[in-house]
Amino acid sequence: MNRIAQGIVLVLLGAGALGSTVSTDLYLNYVQAGFRPFLIAAGAVLIALGAIVVAAEARSALRGDAPAEPAGCGPGHDESGGHGHGAPRVAWLLLLPVLAVFVVAPPALGSYTAENASTGEPPSEGGSYDELGEAESGGPAEMEIQEFIARAWTDEERSMEGMTVRLTGFAVPAPEGEGWYLARLQMACCAADAIVNRVLITDRPEPPEDSWWRVEGTWQPPEGDLRSVRDHRFSVAAMEEVDNPPDPYE
């Protein structure tokens, strides 16, 4: 790979970063929304560096300058000895992320990850939540699955009991064979550290895997210690299929 090719690779990598952040929300499949400015800056720097490299090599070629010999390489040097000029051929693998973004566009993590990822742990103490109440329109209280589970684990007064709640997530098969999960993945930084938040549904037929649903229903509080429950049960009163949200994570 000569220096012009290296510069082109830098430009393509930068274009991939900008293409997934400026014109689309594709980056939300992999990182938190707060990383957008940094990705834009990194993409701009890569494009600028690549353009500088290509321009410098083009000017050098127009002037007819001979490429500098690497140290230790003379006219009789045998390149088969492992001292190749420029970057090694493996550097072309840097193009794979670009192809992934422009050609494949890997989707957000889904049910396969939710089945195998670790579930959230009960908080050491109750969080600071708004007081529960019906929505202003008189409809159900809408909350994230993460908040629903945290309340179910920590609210010893069980204030959610009997209250109609609306949750949105994707369908995940239950490996144990009982019902299915409505799940949402939560990430602190990027998709690599995602953990799963989920509720168990047993009173509705299992929908297609990875399909997104908005469900309304009630929490089924367990007997005994709330923190000992692995998967809190949710009784569904109504459900409708929805489009995948732009930001699939909580």
Rank of each mutant, 00 (worst) to 15 (best):
P248R: 12
V53N: 07
G139K: 05
W213P: 00
F170M: 13
T154L: 10
G169F: 07
E156T: 14
V215E: 00
N2W: 07
S159L: 14
A87H: 06
L95K: 09
Y129S: 05
E125Q: 15
V196P: 01
I201V: 05
S20W: 00
L49P: 01
F102P: 00
V98D: 01
S23F: 07
G224L: 11
A55I: 04
R198K: 13
L167N: 03
T168L: 01
A105I: 01
A33G: 15
P221E: 12
D78R: 14
T24E: 02
G179C: 02
S118G: 04
F35C: 02
L96I: 15
A117I: 01
Q32P: 00
V229A: 08
V45K: 06
A66H: 11
G64S: 14
P70G: 03
V45M: 14
C189T: 09
L95I: 08
V90Q: 13
R230W: 06
P246E: 15
L13Y: 06
L26C: 01
R63I: 06
W180N: 00
S159K: 15
G169V: 07
D65N: 13
Y112S: 10
R166A: 15
G179V: 01
S118L: 10
G72Q: 13
H83K: 11
Y249R: 06
A188T: 14
P208K: 11
E79A: 12
L39F: 12
Q32L: 14
A114W: 06
E178M: 04
E131P: 03
L182I: 03
Y112E: 14
V98Q: 02
G50V: 13
G162T: 11
A194C: 09
D65E: 14
Y249S: 05
L10V: 07
R59M: 13
V45H: 07
V199S: 03
G43P: 02
A191E: 06
E156F: 07
D155T: 11
A105N: 10
